[in-house]
Design a protein around this nucleic acid. Structure first.
Lengths: 343, 343
DNA sequence: ACTACTATTTGGAACGTTCCTATTGTAATC
DNA sequence: GATTACAATAGGAACGTTCCAAATAGTAGT
């Protein structure tokens, strides 16, 4: 327990070579003779040697470690993104270290510090809301590449480029779709009023309605299934004229779907619903949930690629990137509930 | 870009003090005079100093860093667990670093290596299936505390204690509940046959049925909503006698709920469903989903506490811990569908 | 046998901290 | 005014690696 961990020197002594040779073996250098390498490896095994990366990092400049700081570990959208990023980086030989800021600006700053101090080569961050300036100042000071994804915590795009989805376009597509399906009064439900994501998703909706000379109705204030169910009840009670809803996300949409069904309104015929994100198992609700689809797995790969390119070429990427959003039309917005037997 | 990062020596020179003093300031020592400390801090700011933890770790033994290696970042159950662990550790002043093995034994070994080499003080791991022996040998070699959670990858409980839920008890509770609700033929649906978790969850079901002299029926082979929906169809077509199902997890249960509804069987009356985990928004399906409830947030806190205790006292924790599973009864298993006017 | 290579191995000198043991400055005590 | 005690600061030696220049061993050509 208290016994000092063996070092490269102990291994060298056991193998009867110099520390330099052991170091070369550790790093898999081709210059060391196969026979010698084997002896060294045996000595490592018998001494119980553990590589000390801290010591190595003291000399080496780069570590091949990339930090991923996410705002919430419980949102499927975010974890799907994180998984995609991590797997892409892993495939390119970079290790990913993930930290969760849990929507807390102070915690985020702390985790960013820790990562920088541990010597990450680059950062990918989905900023939390709050006093996140600290985090970015720190990153700027450290001078490492950092890409903001999905949310923009710091507007200095010359330092921290921003990648997200083209949510406004998604809003347009979804609203156009609902209009094409014959909807007359279309509401926007969900989101939090002070957040950029909400504004973006809603803007496409507003623009499209305005163009079609329709009056918008919105119910903002929540992002959960519960909120969706609640607003479904409100709509049934007070706004019977609403015959279509574009939801802020899939959760709200599913809540509305359940809520409408509970209250006896037929989703797909009486009222049409389109969600946002397209993360949920769409086919497993009755009816299937339509959505403005954000291909987050692909987005994750793209973000990882942008960061790696930046890291390897040293060239600053373009300050803004918007991934396209497409429309997935399912039963919840397509006339009568389709019989699933057709496919 | 190429400019060398400033070190404490640069700061010391700028502040007109010695490196030792700067080091003390960095670590917040109370022995240094307030005035001096301020000068040093100013110097740090003006030089753009970044603390080099790798260098510090070379001297210090402990780092206050705890590694969390999880098998899947996309399972809500796991991410909820990770969040809980992380927040508990954070509250105790430990930083958590998370890595995703994505159910890949080799990747897990790699991430475990990386964490050990980075000097984590302890590890908490939800092992992936596959050749995970490497990982544990490595941990044993490093001689750091390691707790296995939710899954047991290595049976050496004298080295790696194991904490999980009492799934068998959950199976018993759920099955007893279904019997008490008047179910006659109860099926078990979901899970993968070669996994311990499936066996455990099913064992409580089997034992209870055996005691009640009923014949078990099980449909194993999947853990998703899709699988649940599929089996719901199978049951409607070929096993009309089945009037209750205990599902491997909530996803399967929700799939079955949708599936049964789609096929016109009234969930809660014609057929009763109980899920497992209790993670989903239970009240937001119609009807609400009953479940054998695993309080994963609490479990995460407990795991973190076990690990911290081990770390701080040096005393090996008990090799096995099973957290209790309780029953949450909702509409899906409770007679007529509540909140719905019987028509 | 000697030279000119090449392949392999080697011993210091970093790297940026922390720890330990001085050293200095200041105030209190004799 | 000298001594003591204490607070504050300073300087050198680690820590375990990598990097570099240099040494050695081995091989082929003359």
């Amino acid at each position: 327990m208290t016994a000092r961990r063996p070092t490269i020197l102990d291994v060298a002594k056991a193998a009867g070579v110099s520390k330099s040779t052991v170091s070369l073996v550790v790093r898999g250098s081709p210059t060391v003779k196969a026979e010698t390498a084997k002896q060294v490896r045996d000595a490592m095994a018998s001494t119980g040697y553990v590589y000390n990366r801290a010591a190595a990092n003291l000399r080496k400049s780069s570590v091949g470690l990339i930090g991923l700081v996410i705002n919430d570990l419980r949102t499927p959208f975010i974890t799907e993104f994180a998984t995609s990023v991590q797997m892409t980086l892993s495939a390119q030989g970079y290790a990913t270290v993930i930290a969760n800021s849990d929507e807390d600006g102070a915690l985020q700053a702390q985790r960013v510090s820790a990562m920088i101090e541990h010597g990450v080569s680059a950062l990918l961050i989905t900023p939390s809301y709050g006093q996140e300036a600290d985090s970015f100042d720190q990153i700027a000071r450290a001078g490492i590449p950092c890409l903001q994804a999905l949310r923009q915590g710091d507007p200095r795009c010359d330092l921290f480029p921003f990648a997200s989805f083209d949510y406004a376009q998604g809003g347009v597509l979804a609203t156009q779709h609902l209009i094409a399906q014959g909807a007359r009064t279309i509401a926007f439900v969900g989101g939090l009023s002070h957040r950029a994501v909400t504004a973006e998703r809603m803007s496409g909706y507003l623009a499209t309605l305005s163009e079609a000379r329709r009056t918008p109705v919105s119910f903002v204030g929540g992002v959960t299934r519960g909120f969706g169910a609640e607003i479904a009840a409100t709509i049934c009670a007070d706004h019977p004229e609403i015959d279509a809803v574009l939801c802020f996300n899939d959760q709200v949409a599913q809540g509305m779907l359940s809520g409408f069904m509970r209250l006896g309104r037929a989703v797909g015929t009486d009222v049409r619903i389109v969600g946002f994100d397209g993360m949920e198992d769409r086919d497993q609700t009755v009816p299937g949930l339509s959505a403005a689809f954000c291909d987050v797995a692909r987005f994750g790969r793209d973000c990882a690629a942008i960061l790696l390119d930046w890291l390897e070429t040293g060239e600053h990427p373009s300050p803004l990137r918007r991934a396209p959003v497409s429309l997935l039309a399912r039963g919840s917005s397509l006339g009568p509930i389709p019989e699933e037997t057709s496919k």
